[in-house]
Write a protein that binds this DNA or RNA. Structure first.
Lengths: 354, 354
DNA sequence: TTGTAGGCGTTATCAG
DNA sequence: CTGATAACGCCTACAA
């Protein structure tokens, strides 16, 4: 107790001693878990400010409580790439909502394939939400399962008894295709999302399709091909407007082989296709119909309303959050299947008569 | 030790006992902090798998070590809004890098104005990075300072002894203005970022400017007005392409009062202005010069290269991360001032002769 | 190389 | 309403 000790931060015990009460009493003053006489509370609070005590140490509290109040969100690939995607950000929003009761923080984690010492294995979190579980992600899944904490997977397959939040990607895609078919289109091209982590741009051959690991892309393509079995498809390297424009140019450059409609697997890609069309002097939807997927507000496409399938991105996140909350309460988590809704905009119309 | 006990998760002590070694030995096997005979290690590992022990409990470990391995990033406003901004995402990238040595996770936090029980006050984190410290943010700052943890502020004023990462917004803006002045422009209009948390769109009057709380907007405007003291300015409600287009239309609609150049305080806004100009049939840079700020790759502006001031967004984040790392090592944090670089693109040229 | 013991700062429980 | 006490699960001197 000599004064040359390192000025260790005050603990709740110090405060209690200083205030002349028991540690437990001081604890209760801060947690509010029981009633305390106003006078005692004052004394404790006074002692606290005097000692510069800023409240219970969260680390100690989480050990004691067995809860850290943090939920990990595991994203595939670069964090920044994830946040470039409006669907992801919307989902995060929903997640925050769904988790609101827990007032839990969200810890962003990448799915780093392995190694010990990884954040995945050592982060002091109460639960995990995995997003877009594919390929590498499966390794992460192992680590996470091993920790025995609640896990929820959004748009991915996690196997045995792990609650999933899924979308009717195939059916929704078929709806879009049917819409175009009904308008009279027979010559349709497809722009898919990236098929796996190489993110290679190019024609989607049966071989590449078989090797694809991104379920979303595969499922949506399946739906589209239910209606247009022979529609050619090109995979984009990512969901970006400029990427859509690039693929769009590939598709539209040659007037002879130009389709009457292009279906893109995301709104950003679709916006890019619209851009490519306009560059080439084609009018949308007069000369070319374009449809997307997601139903997000595309920044920079103000003059047109995209025909698209509106996915409940916020709901997806919220559902995941709610399941996590339930599981943290000891109830079993359940899977949820959400559906998309076709929204007909101003970018699709009957093909021009030739 | 009766078998009807709740099947409590195994602890490292259980594993040790099961393997017939001391707890400390088992601990060392997992932490790798000392050499252990291969045979003993095997036995410990075997015992662990047998008991379903997935490694040390991070909560207990962080209490013991006094570190949780998590750094909080406090953002102003909605999380999703923050991530809609490419500069922010780039910065987060840099931050991740700067923090790499610590292999720390990043906990996303909003600056919720106060209340106890807030994540800001209770999250088990080792340090804080505050971004765009303004207005409400100051309350958050109080809470955070109270906790006595390392704090770094990016583009904001945190007062007394708190390391800041700042940008030469004023000087860089003056550079842009000078570039346009040199080209011969005298009739220039400005589109500013939002001035405060209301995000009101409209003419920037001296009164509004005086009440502005967003330093970045104010500083950049000051730089521009060094060169064009009388340039009219309109504040945007946020940094988005569509918002830039909206303000752009306000500025360009009337041919009589139309400026020969528009300087926007962000690239996204500038892209919107370009869009508005194109809609009105104006050519950029032939009929109108447009400049931005940030130097990001604007998704959806592929045909033009924006004249802009390239800010070291990634470096900003990295610098913050490095300071945090230093402070966590017990060294004092130091402020860093970073500079932008003018990049002349294809959107500015001499004004048309009239 | 392995074992022992003490404490990290809280909070839950239970008695007064 | 307040107080004593025992964990929470781990780590790390220090001793053997």
């Amino acid at each position: 107790m000599s004064s040359r000790e390192t000025p260790r931060r005050a603990t709740i015990a110090d405060v209690a001693r200083h205030a002349g009460v028991a540690t437990s009493t001081a604890s209760v003053v801060f947690s509010g878990k029981a009633k305390v006489a106003a006078a005692t509370r004052e004394r404790v609070l006074a002692a606290a400010t005097e000692l510069g005590y800023a409240g219970p140490d969260p680390r100690a509290a989480s050990l004691r409580r067995g809860r850290s109040g943090i939920v990990a969100v595991v994203l595939e690939g670069e964090l920044r790439a994830a946040f470039l995607d409006p669907v992801t950000t919307a989902m995060m929003d929903g997640l925050t909502e769904g988790l609101a009761d827990l007032s839990a923080g969200i810890l962003l984690l990448r799915d780093e394939p392995g190694d010990e010492g990884s954040a995945l294995a050592n982060a002091p979190v109460d639960a995990f939400v995995l997003i877009g579980c594919s390929g590498r992600m499966r390794d992460s899944l192992e680590v996470v399962r091993g920790r025995g904490l609640p896990v929820v997977v959004i748009e991915g397959d996690a196997g045995e008894g792990i609650p999933r939040i899924t979308l009717d990607n195939t059916a929704a895609s078929a709806d879009i295709a049917r819409h175009l078919h009904d308008l009279g289109h027979r010559d349709v091209a497809i722009v898919t999302l990236h098929l796996n982590s190489d993110r290679e741009r190019g024609v989607v051959t049966p071989e590449r399709l078989a090797a694809a690991t991104v379920d979303v892309a595969v499922d949506r393509l399946a739906g589209l091909r239910q209606v247009f079995p022979d529609a050619p498809a090109i995979s984009a390297s990512g969901s970006l407007i400029d990427e859509g424009a690039r693929v769009g140019r590939m598709l539209l450059a040659d007037a002879a082989t130009r389709p009457t409609a292009v279906i893109a697997q995301s709104d950003l890609l679709a916006a890019g296709v619209v851009r490519a069309a306009e560059e080439l002097g084609l009018r949308v939807p007069g000369d070319l119909s374009v449809a997307g997927f997601d139903g997000i507000a595309v920044d920079g496409l103000s003059h047109l309303t995209l025909t698209t399938s509106v996915q409940p991105a916020v709901d997806k996140g919220r559902a995941a959050g709610e399941q996590v909350a339930r599981m943290l309460h000891g109830e079993p988590g359940t899977s949820q299947h959400l559906t998309c809704r076709l929204r007909v905009g101003t970018t699709t119309a009957a093909p021009a008569v030739r």
